[in-house]
Design a protein around this nucleic acid. Structure first.
Ligand SMILES: NC(=O)c1ccc[n+]([C@@H]2O[C@H](COP(=O)([O-])OP(=O)(O)OC[C@H]3O[C@@H](n4cnc5c(N)ncnc54)[C@H](O)[C@@H]3O)[C@@H](O)[C@H]2O)c1
Ligand SMILES: NC(=O)c1ccc[n+]([C@@H]2O[C@H](COP(=O)([O-])OP(=O)(O)OC[C@H]3O[C@@H](n4cnc5c(N)ncnc54)[C@H](O)[C@@H]3O)[C@@H](O)[C@H]2O)c1
Lengths: 292, 292
DNA sequence: CCATCTTTGTGCACGCGTTCACAAAGACAT
DNA sequence: ATGTCTTTGTGAACGCGTGCACAAAGATGG
């Protein structure tokens, strides 16, 4: 889910591959668990299993950090925890602000995993005047007016956006102008940011859609005759539109497509459909325009 | 953040690359926004800009679905919305259960973006008897005892796990045994699942750590002499441990590493450190073992 | 009907990431 | 000290994803 990486060629000689960086937290978590159980050393095989990756991959990942293992024995757990933590910049304290203290923002503020790894919630910010001063997770919510001052006073470089989609772009601009250079975005929008600013996004809806794709695949394999037929109907209808429209004006084609697509979709759905609600998300989230 | 994909070679002839699948929801969102504004057609260039990707990539992605564009004009918005929706399996209704109705689970249940794309929250499940019957987002929470029955009765194939990390593996096993084949996991654990089950994870902590890594990089570039020195000290201490330990037994090396790593880390931190809290997350989240 | 202009669809090359497989390093026993 | 056994670190091959660049398709205007 990485986005917006400028992927500068790393002036620094030691360039750790992005894919490796993304796995380091995984290794760190597994190592921390071992450390708690006072396990002194661990082999690449064992650790890889715990982290859910290939052991060769893990060894190669570690090789980018240096030679921290001992052949015939494995890796020293405590030592590796320290090295990875240092590489990830976790040996220092990162003040973080959360903007948008609604359902999600409040949950994030309450999340313990935040503080447990060197991240400190420096402030909670919301545009709703009614929220101002109200404590969430033991911290008083501050109004958006204070945003710039908060960022600057606390030397914040990492911001979390949990506002409605419509406000996200503007919020990101204010954060960046005030000094933030890393953003974790929970709003379903593509943020436009200048070079040098890293954006990572977490999008529940996208994750579910990807799962749905594979789920449909699985269902399609033990294809019920019924489903195949329904699909064929939809397919045929779609093709008809295309072929017919080819001989028409672009305008006519568009109309034909829109009209034909809906009924065919409805037909394909008929088998599984339970209830057709009005698809209209709250906040700025765009409603799906699928057949109603 | 894809995980656990079995990556079966796709019996079906039409194999859409995983990277493309992950982008389809992005395109769909941009297209839906255009559709709302009644924009009839869109060029690959425009749509790519809206989705934040390269236009060549977008065209190639669409080419896997078929030839849905018109040269010299672009793509028909409505038609493309339908095709992508169908490809993602969004023309059918997917019942979803959320397990673990705490801070996060409740926020998810309240999230409108869920229902807005063909996903229907079929049930909310929690192990806490006190929660049972309590309505969250208009749905009564049900007890874990009912899990299997709920899954089977509603034909649920997609499950969301928002329990503490310690419970996640067990919950996933029950879900899978009851018929779930796709899991969206918010708990910070690597789930062990059988072939044929897709798992995608959302891990806030990992995202922040990745951001911290890049943030540290940026800070290192306009390296203050102070920071360089502190880093060098830590580095030297670390090296010392390694070199010295090489002449000792593994046991001694481990001890030396553990002891030396802490003070050197503390030293490196000294500049930026604000407050050293006891790192102990709630729930099953593993506490970081870094210098206290 | 022809010319021009726009935009798609894709062949191709390149770079990154993954995985295999193995030589070398080192622990440990004798 | 020497041999055996375990496990690392990495060279090399491969496959996937990305982006360039362009030919072909088709719209549009004269
Ligand atoms: N709730 C979830 O589970 C969930 C899941 C995935 C994505 N999201 C996304 O996260 C975002 C927040 O979701 P939510 O359910 O918490 O919504 P919400 O409506 O409960 O909360 C949004 C909050 O943002 C505040 N806000 C609005 N404009 C603002 C601005 N310009 N500056 C600062 N604050 C502002 C509002 O006052 C409100 O408190 C949405 O974009 C949503 O699509 C939510
Ligand atoms: N809150 C966040 O912003 C956030 C962010 C990232 C990750 N997470 C992770 O998501 C998970 C939930 O976080 P939270 O803040 O909501 O925690 P929480 O403690 O508020 O909620 C956990 C809920 O799960 C229920 N539960 C416990 N064991 C269960 C079981 N076996 N079956 C069903 N339900 C069970 C508990 O009764 C509780 O209601 C945690 O693993 C956390 O690490 C949370």
């Amino acid at each position: 889910m990485a986005t917006g990486r400028t992927h500068r060629p790393a002036t620094r000689s030691r360039g750790i591959p992005e894919a490796t960086v993304a796995r380091l937290p995984l290794y760190l978590r597994a190592l921390t668990a071992l450390s708690e159980r006072s396990v002194p050393t661990v082999s690449s095989e064992e650790l890889a299993a715990a982290a859910g990756v290939n052991s060769a991959k893990l060894r190669k990942d570690f090789s980018y950090l240096g030679s921290y293992g001992t052949r015939g024995v494995g890796y020293d757990v405590e030592y590796l925890v320290y090295q990875i933590s240092r590489e990830l910049g976790l040996t220092q304290d990162w003040p973080v602000v959360i903007v948008g203290i609604g359902n999600l923002g409040a949950a994030l503020a309450n999340y313990g995993g935040f503080a447990s790894r060197g991240f400190r919630v420096a402030a909670l910010i919301d545009a709703d005047p009614a929220m101002a001063g109200k404590p969430v997770a033991g911290i008083a919510v501050q109004h958006t007016d204070e945003l710039e001052k908060i960022i600057e006073d606390n030397g914040v470089h990492i911001g979390v956006i949990a506002t409605p989609a419509g406000a996200a772009q503007q919020v990101s601009e204010r954060l960046i102008a005030a000094g933030v250079t890393s953003i974790l975005n929970f709003a379903p929008t593509v943020l436009q940011v200048p070079d040098g600013v890293d954006v990572r996004k977490v999008d529940l809806s996208i994750e579910l859609q990807i799962l749905a794709f594979h789920e449909q695949r699985k269902a399609g394999e033990e294809a019920t005759a019924e489903a195949v037929v329904a699909d064929a109907v939809a397919e045929a209808a779609a093709k008809d539109v295309k072929d017919t429209a080819a001989e028409q004006s672009a305008e006519a084609k568009r109309t034909a497509a829109a009209e034909a697509a809906v009924p065919s979709a409805a037909r394909a759905e008929a088998t599984a459909r339970t209830e057709s609600t009005d698809r209209k998300g709250p906040d700025g989230d765009v409603p799906a325009v699928m057949p109603a």
